[in-house]
Design a protein around this nucleic acid. Structure first.
Length: 554
RNA sequence: GCGCCUGUAGCUCAGCUGGAUAGAGCAACGGACUUCUAAUCCGUAGGCCAGGGGUUCGAAUCCCUUCAGGCGCGCCA
């Protein structure tokens, strides 16, 4: 629609110039937007305003010249008005909007899809929590954002792969092993002082207990180092298993779980360092090997191999990102906690040093989540081990509510997650407001079927009978959906979909309160059913992008 | 100290990459169920877009600066 308007405007400007009404055919960039006020029409353009300086004319005069030359063969327009400082407001004939209803019925779950991805491959890596403890609420937010971004890109023609990077190679895994072994010794009656730098949570005790039952004797025969390694491996596997389960319950499914250890074992870290060496981007100093990341926009250079000979975490991360691009992804998206933001420049630097475009990497920095209960902060100290896990949240408030809340804000904005509020099935909780639309429509459809009200009606629905202002409002809102999806994909911002669904829900509830769908007049009822089905479809599509279910009843 | 992010109604947040009189929800107040689900709807009230400068036809939006908050500045991961 916008594009049609755009070409109509271009043609009008050209015609005006031909007739000598304008000084030049030159045209700066101009916008067509949807004004917030209804009095300003369905669309408005600022052509006249931005042309003022090149035309050396008053904006309103330019607008007059342009409006006078608009030709509208397909009868889109009700009228075009000049308003304010020189805006041109377009009023679309109400019937024109109705065509979107047919599109929705024809395209069904593909309504809203587009092909800006053109089949290119994108990898979305998210969550990637260390397998040293259960997922917490912050990971949940990252999971919701990453999964939804993946859904959105997929609908927009990208070939998407979801990946979880498992940090199973570093020091923290050894610390995990040590923690478990110490708890195990404790169970065997030894009195030990549990170090502060070990993992404190009760889940460590639980793993130790199970390990003692299953492999107690085996462990007794090992020396210290072997035992730690053994404990580490078993514990990490078990924790990862739990993480998988939690994410499964949360509705998140990864295409690949990528092990850092596999990267190390395959020699990819050394290979990556070698590549940096060949690019002349590393040097030795103070006994360590440094990556000259400051040459690629980072604040300072970074160590990749320590004086001890151990490689840093950053070294494997360089190798991991190299690996991503070597796998042929056209684009890579990392979802991180915002506390890692300082890390972005060095990873981009590494990508650049390896000869890739740093623009092929997008990092989404998700702000932290503050957990509340009835407005009071819930202690989330990892050290005490008394944190509320993602599992707890799913069990208490449900995956749908949790995901919706996580996606109800821009990821840039810190989020207060109130457990009591998330549980409330009331108007304070927007999840149900949106889901209720789907359930209500499902109920109407059941009723329509039971009463055989419309089944006798076989003709094409007479959509032009949808004349109520609330109906036009719904139809126009539906027509906006593809653009919402597109902008969500362009900016990697799922919350746009969330806000859209709230808008659509409001339009529907408002309509529902005022008008009856299943009226005596079968022709009208059929048309309304047709529209309401379209609302249901778009609701379902949008909720699917968020990973939230669309219930048939509530 | 330096860097990144944030500051919009009492509270929680949108604001379509510069547009017209800044919008929702909650909370407050007043109304609406004999109907397809009231988990809903309708109305009222609520603002120096943190402060100050600039850029231009036009700024919540862009630039500079001050203030306030969050986060980051390891041979940790």
């Amino acid at each position: 629609m916008k594009e049609t308007l755009r070409s109509m405007i271009l043609a009008a400007v050209d015609a005006a110039f031909q007739k000598g009404l304008l000084a030049t055919a030159a045209l700066p960039e101009f916008d067509i937007e949807e004004p917030r006020s209804r009095e300003h029409g369905d669309f408005a353009t600022n052509v006249a305003l931005v042309s003022a300086s090149v035309q050396k004319m008053a904006p309103r005069k330019i607008a007059q010249a342009v409006v006078g030359q608009i030709s509208d063969p397909s009868g889109l327009l009700l009228k075009a008005e000049i308003a304010g400082p020189g805006f041109i407001n377009f009023f679309i004939r109400p019937e024109v909007w109705l065509s979107v209803l047919k599109d929705i019925h024809d395209l069904a779950e593909r309504f809203g899809a587009c092909d800006i991805g053109r089949g290119r491959r994108v990898q979305v890596e998210f969550v990637s929590a260390n397998p040293t403890g259960p997922l917490h609420v912050g990971h949940g937010r990252g999971a919701a954002v990453g999964d939804s971004v993946a859904n959105i890109l997929s609908l927009c023609g990208w070939q998407v792969e979801r990946e979880y990077y498992v940090n199973d190679a570093g020091n923290q895994i050894m610390t995990l092993g040590r923690s478990v072994l110490l708890r195990l010794r404790e169970l065997e009656g030894q009195s030990i002082e549990f170090p502060a730098d070990c993992y404190q949570g009760d889940y460590i005790r639980e793993i130790a207990r199970r390990l003692r039952e299953s492999h107690g004797e085996e462990l007794a025969g090992m020396d210290g180092g072997q035992a730690i390694e053994f404990c580490a491996r078993v514990a990490a596997e078990s924790i990862l298993e739990g993480i998988r389960d939690d994410l499964h319950s949360f509705g998140v499914c990864f295409d690949r779980w990528f092990s850092e250890k596999s990267l190390v074992d395959a020699g990819d870290v050394d290979a990556a360092l070698q590549s940096l060496q060949e690019a002349d981007a590393v040097y030795e100093s103070d006994g360590a090997l440094w990556f000259a990341s400051s040459r690629f926009g980072d604040e300072k250079d970074r160590v990749v191999v320590r004086g001890s000979g151990d490689k840093t975490y950053f070294a494997s991360d360089i190798a991991y990102h190299k690996n991503k691009f070597d796998r042929g992804f056209d684009r890579v998206i990392d979802v991180w906690g915002a506390d890692h933001h300082g890390y972005v420049p060095r990873v981009k630097a590494a990508i650049q040093a390896l000869g890739k475009s740093p623009e092929a990497l997008d990092v989404i920095l998700v702000q932290l989540v503050a957990l509340l209960r009835e407005g009071q902060p819930v202690s989330m100290s990892t050290r005490s081990g008394e944190f509320v896990t993602l599992r707890d949240v799913i069990d208490e408030v449900g995956a749908d509510a949790a995901r919706f809340i996580f996606l109800s804000r821009h990821y840039d904005s810190p989020l207060d997650f109130d457990l009591e509020l998330a549980k409330k099935q009331s108007n304070e909780n927007p999840v149900y407001y949106v889901q209720y639309v789907h359930a209500r429509i499902a109920s109407i459809l059941r009723k329509a079927e039971d009463d055989n009200m419309v089944s006798g009606y076989t003709g094409t629905p007479e959509l032009e009978r949808l004349r109520e202002p609330e109906e036009t409002e719904i139809v126009k809102t539906l027509a906006r959906y593809p653009e919402v999806v597109l902008s969500a994909a362009r900016f990697l911002e799922p919350h746009r979909v969330t806000f859209y669904l709230l808008d659509l829900a409001a339009a529907f509830h408002s309509y529902y309160a005022k008008h009856r769908v299943l009226v005596e007049d079968v022709g009208l009822a059929a048309a309304r059913l047709y529209m309401v089905c379209a609302v249901k479809q778009v609701m379902r599509n949008g909720l699917a992008l968020l990973g939230v279910s669309a219930p048939e009843s509530m």
